[in-house]
Write a protein that binds this DNA or RNA. Structure first.
Lengths: 180, 180
DNA sequence: GTCTATAAAAAGATAGAC
DNA sequence: GTCTATCTTTTTATAGAC
């Protein structure tokens, strides 16, 4: 069933893009409508308020997290390795939704903050059986948080965070420290 | 010399508090003036614009980072251990300034983002001689980033991040992995 | 230095035509 | 479903009295 009209998705895409590339401040109803190529009235038909727009973004994240948790649990290379590798921004749909919702959370949306904590909890649950102890689980999650946080601070600028070769060395280091 | 009048510091304190406890959105000139116990006109005498207020906050961070870098380099327990322990929010002046400037960065302030990257670079410089290699340095910085990011997402709610006993185990784990 | 009053712009939301 | 026009509130900033 094609529940969401294409225009609805376009609006959400535009909202996401502005949140990531610019800021929460910049993501006004006006700016989103313009970027999506619709009028403010058109936007408000699909999302009746700013809150509804944010809720739509959070729903998108929730759905992508469902898929991600399945992928982590089933990764052939091992859940921890897969999880860390996927924590480096690749601009895939989940990464983008996460960054967007993080902006909303920083901007003051309580619902966005809750969604992020929920996501973190699901990651913890799927990774726990694959690490040595609580400290190891903390380490893995914190490194992942760190990777995302750095991406959040950059505007696509030079990557402070390990890239390519350095990332492999980092993952190897973490795996030695946490393997169950 | 007592360059900055007391009122100036009060305004900055109020700005910082609202950014941390609420959000970037909530930190309007009006709200800051009210929290600082001055009128909007009074606030604007000390900070002629919102930009000037943000610049004042960034200056405060820069000064506190100066002190912190010295403390890290001179820590008797070792720089890495001291650095990680101090990455857990203690509500000291540096932590507060960092969280506040992080909010500004997420809110779209380019100057705030630059200030945070500058800070991260100074930490890297002071820690580099005390870790094994680049991956180890990345690990330490990312765990620290993760600790701050989690604190940034919470509203003083339950701590997801290791606390007390768990923190010691985490630090021990990291030290084993990175010691030079 | 600090205040009140007010202007000017921007943001969210409504009404109703098409 | 999508548009234009308009209203309300909020936010930043200015003017000028004290």
């Amino acid at each position: 069933m094609s529940r969401p009209p294409r225009a609805r998705a376009s609006v959400l895409d535009a909202f996401e893009q502005i949140l990531i590339a610019d800021s929460e401040r910049a993501a006004t109803m006006d700016a989103v409508a313009r970027a999506a190529g619709v009028s403010k009235g058109g936007l408000l038909y699909h999302f009746a308020s700013k809150d509804a727009l944010e809720a739509g973004m959070i729903d998108r994240l929730d759905e992508l997290v469902d898929e991600d948790v399945s992928a982590i649990g089933a990764a052939p290379e091992g859940p921890v390795s897969y999880f860390l590798r996927s924590s480096v921004l690749t601009a895939d749909p989940l990464d983008r939704a996460m960054l967007a919702v993080s902006r909303l959370a920083q901007g003051g949306s309580a619902a966005a903050g809750t969604a992020l904590q929920r996501m973190r909890g699901r990651w913890a649950d799927v990774l726990r059986p694959h690490v040595r102890d609580q400290a190891a689980l903390d380490l893995v999650l914190l490194v992942s948080d760190g990777l995302y946080f750095n991406n959040l601070l950059e505007d696509g600028a030079a990557t402070l965070v390990p890239a390519d070769a350095d990332l492999e060395a980092l993952i190897a280091l973490v795996l030695r420290a946490v393997d169950a």
